[in-house]
């Protein structure tokens, strides 16, 4: 699904040079639920941005479905993001002036050939999946954090992406709400076979995924199947 080869990411500012990622090699197979852990500032978000084609590595190759992504124009990158990738952020990034339904529909706005009626139908289905059918007309500010994140997940899955990249999706939530979000992601992975890469600070959450990659200072320090892996695959 996604392969990273010798990824190097260096942020160059006037005064300092930050090596955010160094020599990262990863392969995320289709259908896997991977979690990424590591202290703050170790490059987890940078990793997700590079996987999600929001940022370019300084060196190295990103492959999506076996195709190396290099020299792609902005328009083509946007197209791949729209078709294949769903994003979930720690701070939800909902547009407060749009209703829940309109927020969920956003990705399809950038996908030509989906009729308004079809878009609406897909949005309602996505909201149903995250258990928010009753809140379609609400605005984000009228929802709890957990509900907002569920809207964000509905938005991430409306376009039926092959992979969801979630950057600390439960970071702003209490444990109960975090649990809810985690269960939705697990269902998505198990039922729809969606590949998920999730950054988290929560060891328990990480243990529920199949594979855990630890980062330190821009480098992978471990990459192992969790106990849940055996449990799931049996």
């Amino acid at each position: 699904m996604i392969t990273l080869k010798n990824i190097e990411k260096v942020y160059q500012t006037k005064t300092i040079e930050t090596v955010a990622l160094h020599n990262v090699n990863l392969h995320i197979p289709k259908g896997e639920f991977v979690s990424v852990m590591g202290p703050s500032g170790c490059g987890k978000s940078t990793l997700l941005n590079i996987m999600g084609l929001l940022d370019e590595p300084t060196n190295g190759i990103v492959e999506i479905d076996g195709n190396p992504i290099s020299r792609y124009r902005d328009k083509e990158l946007a197209h791949i993001r729209n078709q294949k990738i769903g994003f979930v952020f720690q701070s939800y990034h909902l547009i407060n002036d749009l209703s829940v339904l309109d927020n969920v529909e956003l990705p399809l706005l950038y996908r030509s050939g989906t009729s308004a009626a079809e878009t609406r139908r897909l949005a309602l289905t996505a909201l149903e999946k995250v258990g928010l059918s009753a809140r379609t007309k609400h605005y984000p500010t009228q929802l709890s954090g957990g509900q907002r994140q569920r809207v964000a997940i509905a938005r991430a899955l409306i376009g039926q992406p092959e992979i969801i990249l979630a950057d600390e999706p439960t970071g702003n939530l209490d444990s109960v709400m975090g649990e809810e979000i985690m269960n939705i992601l697990l269902d998505l992975n198990r039922q729809d076979g969606t590949t998920i890469v999730m950054v988290t600070h929560d060891e328990n959450m990480a243990q529920k995924t199949e594979r855990l990659i630890r980062f330190f200072d821009g480098q992978q320090v471990s990459d192992a199947k969790t106990n849940a892996y055996d449990y799931q695959k049996v």
């Binding site: 929001l54 946007a78 993001r81 994003f87 950038y110 996908r111």
Partner: peptide, 16 residues
């Protein structure tokens, strides 16, 4: 800023 970044992530090109 956030909205712009979000739209880009969801598949909007710079031109869009």
């Amino acid at each position: 800023n956030g909205e712009i970044g979000l739209r880009r992530a969801l598949g909007a090109s710079a031109n869009q």
